[in-house]
Nucleic acid binder design. Sequence first.
DNA 1: TTTT
DNA 2: TTTT
Lengths: 170, 170, 170, 170
Amino acid sequence: MASVNKVILIGNLGRDPELRTFPSGGQVANVSLATTETWKDRQTGERRELTEWHNLVFSDRLAEVAAQYLRKGSPVYIEGRIRTRKWQDQSGQDRYTTEIRVDNMQMLGGRGEGGGGNYGAAEAGGQGSYGNSAPAPARQPAAPASAAQRSAAPPAAAFDNGFEDDDIPF
Amino acid sequence: MASVNKVILIGNLGRDPELRTFPSGGQVANVSLATTETWKDRQTGERRELTEWHNLVFSDRLAEVAAQYLRKGSPVYIEGRIRTRKWQDQSGQDRYTTEIRVDNMQMLGGRGEGGGGNYGAAEAGGQGSYGNSAPAPARQPAAPASAAQRSAAPPAAAFDNGFEDDDIPF
Amino acid sequence: MASVNKVILIGNLGRDPELRTFPSGGQVANVSLATTETWKDRQTGERRELTEWHNLVFSDRLAEVAAQYLRKGSPVYIEGRIRTRKWQDQSGQDRYTTEIRVDNMQMLGGRGEGGGGNYGAAEAGGQGSYGNSAPAPARQPAAPASAAQRSAAPPAAAFDNGFEDDDIPF
Amino acid sequence: MASVNKVILIGNLGRDPELRTFPSGGQVANVSLATTETWKDRQTGERRELTEWHNLVFSDRLAEVAAQYLRKGSPVYIEGRIRTRKWQDQSGQDRYTTEIRVDNMQMLGGRGEGGGGNYGAAEAGGQGSYGNSAPAPARQPAAPASAAQRSAAPPAAAFDNGFEDDDIPF
DNA sequence: TTTT
DNA sequence: TTTT
């Protein structure tokens, strides 16, 4: 059965990426990316805009590159796929978080880009195209400690849960 | 600031689309689309697969076409953008649902496609490319009745909330 | 019959765009965009790269924006479709030129970008997303003078030919 | 420098793919894919349509799959990149041919698709997603015999030229 | 003809 | 939380 799940985004990072390394050696970097849609309101004629925040998940080699070169405010192009993870909040209720698993990225903004963040590092070595040998989903890293599993659920904890189930590919 | 939010999916519908018409005349059709990723497990070598369900939202003319020609099981190509809606569950907690606002669609599967559903209708008039004059977000329809607003939150109700706020473009 | 013809490019312009206005009022801007692929040679292990030049064709409102804000060296994201035009060279032989009809563009490189060119203009008003109400192909402008039709064929002349046939959409 | 060169097509094959194996063991399959754009003429209001033919080039494992399962008329989704090859016609003039190097494909049309061709084979084993480990361009196969190099130039010969230069990645 |  |  034919299947395609592809996402293409260009936007700016809301924070510096957070890199985590797992006992297995796997690495993952999470960060939010903002895309902003603007249009003119048909009724009032005024300028409107709406910002969408995307939860990006970089893995393996891409995670390293993201952590090394991307900073808060960095403009970036990414290709990836949508993945919704199920987790349980404190009350045991099912909750869902949608993420973008990044398969390919391009740093944009050649000179001195980076918003309020210290993006200088990227100047040194940044620029270029990065990707995992994508199509084939890579092995997910073993989970970090997580007593929080079926309990607390701040966005950060939610992100971790995805790696608890050994059967779900990353 | 440069911004791109683009999604491309090919998959099959999980149900017949549900068409709703609003007092304002606006129309919206919701339906889930499944994409399935398959790969060979690096450790065990066995075949693995993971199905992802996407909440599609068609509007205006596209909603009509979707409701008329698409059925449970219909294979379809869509282009759209990611949109996460915030809503409150019964306990008043913030919750989020990620949807794909469809900007363009192509019915796939020329002859007798449609899984278990009665996709025959599409045979009659179906096939071809459909899109709203996309880039500019269309006017969102006024909201249908909804005492449920900040309370109950089955997926369906959640879908409705997005149309309550007159200021959010569709 | 299902059909999709979509191109997504990020690269830099090789020259300033050339804007032409037709008697009909239609406008078209042509410019080349370079994309560069790099990889490590499997045999020698050395760094390799290959640059591809794409003939972009902007029309109507997009042509104006491109001519006003883009310059030689400008980094840009574009979405469009592939179109191969047939024309005759001096000896009357059929020749073909492949172009990218741009449906959507995003200027990249926020601050002082623009390579060797005078990209300053873009700083003033540039930035943002531009598109024709794409899907529906716009009316092509009437052709400019062209005694050259079935004869000379420098790239420039070749570009003009596409607008000679009133029946071909732009 | 940021660079993206991506093409997404859905259409039908004009012929059965031609598979060629090179002394080096490399394999390539060529085939044309038609995409059709339709629109309503703004002036006359009549239905118009334009068919575009794309030269697809599959390599290595993808070439095998294409040759085995795709047939004249087969509906297919492909992802790839644009590549324009330069060659010399009989008179020694430079000529260019634009191709789509396929990185990923999905066979569409589940039941009995295939136009006039014998697409049955696909029913047996067909369906599913196929791709080379894309991003990194694969080694190009050594060239087949070609006295025709700088002379004759039927489309087929033109296709071969790309593999003459050992330095150009596939 | 661009960019790194 | 970004960017304009």
